[in-house]
Structures are given as C-alpha cells and as structure tokens.
Design a protein around this nucleic acid. Structure first.
Lengths: 145, 145
DNA sequence: AAATTCGTGCGAGATTTTCGCAAAAATTCT
DNA sequence: AGAATTTTTGCGAAAATCTCGCACGAATTT
C-alpha cells in the first residue's frame, strides 16, 4: 500500500470511533467530497489498512458482566510454556485478550465472566498449574473505549 | 429492552464478526426477510445492545507498531481525579483502552505508539503529574484476539 | 372467541454507495 | 521550466441498500 496522507489518517481516526459514518458525514469532517471519502475508505479496506468492521455488543447481553485484568507470572525456567499458554488462552472464551509482555509479569489477560463464582472457577481451572508462579487479579470497575 | 430471541443472538453473532453485512446477506443467514433483519438490528442499536460499530485498523500499517500495557497507581488522597483522568484518557489517541480497576493499581491502559521515542514522549507528557504515584510499563511482545 | 399486541413480508420512497468521466492537481521526465 | 504522465478530485447517473407504511398472520390477553 502506498503512503497514507492526512486525509486517510483522519478517515481512519473517524471510522475507528464510528464505522457507520456516511459518505456525506465523512465529507464535511475531512473536507473532501463524499465520493472521494468513500473511494478512499474503499481502498483502505481493500488494502487491509482497515482489517474489518465489527459491532461492539454490550457484554451484559451475554450475561458477562464482570471483567478482570490478570497479570500472570510464570516460573522462570519454563519459557517453553509460552507458546502453549498462548494457544490455550486463544481457545478459552473467557479470555478476551491476551498480551505477552516484558517486565515483571509475563502475560496480561482480559477475562470476561458472569460473576465472581465463575471467575473463581476459571482461576482454579487455569492458573493452578506448576509453571505459573503467581497471578494478580484486577477487577475492572469501569472502562473506556 | 425486552428479551432477545434466537434471531437476535444470531444477528449479534454475525455482526460482531462483520458489521458490514447487508440486509440481504443477514436475511439468508438467519432465515428472515431483509427488512425484518434490518429492523431488528436497528432496534439492537437503539436499545444499546449494540453499543457501537468500529473499524479495526491494522496497527502496523498505521505506523503504530508498539503496544504497551501501563499499570497506573494514583496518590490515595486524590480520588476526585479519577473522573478527570478517564476523560483525559478518552481524548488521547494513543490510549486504546482504559480500565479503572481495584487492587494495588488504579488504571490499566493499553497504549499504542510508533516506537520507544514516541512512548517516552507520551510518558513525559501524561504520567509526570503530582497525583500519579507510579506507573509500570509492560511492553507487549505479542497478542491474541 | 374477539380484541389487542407484536412481528412479519412486501414494496415504495429515501438514503447511501459505486462508478464513469472530464477536469484539476501532483508527479515524472526531458 | 514546461510537457507528458499519473493520480485524485468533484460531479452526476446508476446501483445498491436502508427505512418505513401497510396489511396480514401468530401469539397473548381479556
């Protein structure tokens, strides 16, 4: 993909926040014609700059009202476990996100569950493994974005 | 909002994966008419079941190749700052996510930047405030989902 | 069993997107 | 610099998509 100019960046910024903006709405915000905006957006999609468009569904609807951030520390002598861990996490529906990080911890997970009981069961099932040294659970009170 | 039936769940499932499906496409996948599907989706949006629609932009192409998880701890005597913080974070394009959490830390941020230099500038600009007690930066090596 | 409510499919009208085209703007070449 | 080429623009028509009123059928209430 060729270089992106300021118009493309502005469009991405807008669509990242609300992908349902219409050509006319984009036009008045970026200062191009409706057609030009839509053509650019089309191109951004085709070239993979915009990977996909998704609807954000309220977690409440699915009865998943509780979010927990987990900081995971593994035993230092088990680096081989990292890949396996990632694959395992990928399959768990409770795990919304999983980042492998540097520093004092090894993984940061975002876990979505219905309630404390469900979270407790999740912890028992997943974190009580010999190669997991410790984990820290941060319950989410509120979120942005 | 009244109860959701199996059609609604199916629609949510589909739109969660691809929010650009047209009425006709939805129709053939769920077994209702195009109009019925669109009416339902409209309702799901109005009632907040679908909170928003967003474009997923490839971080690489966007030139934001570096992700950092930040654990933020505030001074205990400044709880009034929480709301202001959240609002401030909401406006920063680098901040992709912001969770207000319980426990040893107060906020967990996901920050997206181009490189270390940009991150450093971000830290200087945002975290060197008197009401911020400490912050811990975890560079992301890889992510899932 | 009638009345009410609710959601459906159909189809017209409105909105939005796509696309061809000529002109303007930017880029490359001589 | 100025000509040639490429890219992108705005316009407008055509295509696609969405919205909405309407009459009908199913489920619920009275």
């Amino acid at each position: 993909m060729a270089e992106l100019d300021k118009f493309d960046y502005r469009l991405l910024e807008l669509l990242q926040d609300n992908s349902r903006l219409t050509g006319t709405e984009l036009a008045e915000k970026v200062g191009l014609s409706s057609a030009a905006c839509l053509r650019r957006v089309q191109r951004l999609r085709e070239t993979g700059v915009i990977e996909r468009d998704v609807a954000v569904v309220s977690p409440k609807v699915f009865g998943k009202r509780m979010t927990v951030i987990v900081l995971l520390t593994m035993e230092r002598d088990r680096p081989d476990r990292y890949m396996l861990m990632r694959e395992a996490f990928a399959k768990m529906p409770e795990v919304q996100q999983c980042h492998h990080v540097t520093g004092a911890h090894d993984f940061v997970l975002r876990v979505q569950v219905g309630d404390m009981e469900e979270y407790s069961a999740f912890v028992d099932r997943v974190f009580h493994e010999p190669y997991i040294k410790r984990y820290e659970s941060l319950a989410v009170l509120g979120s942005l974005k």
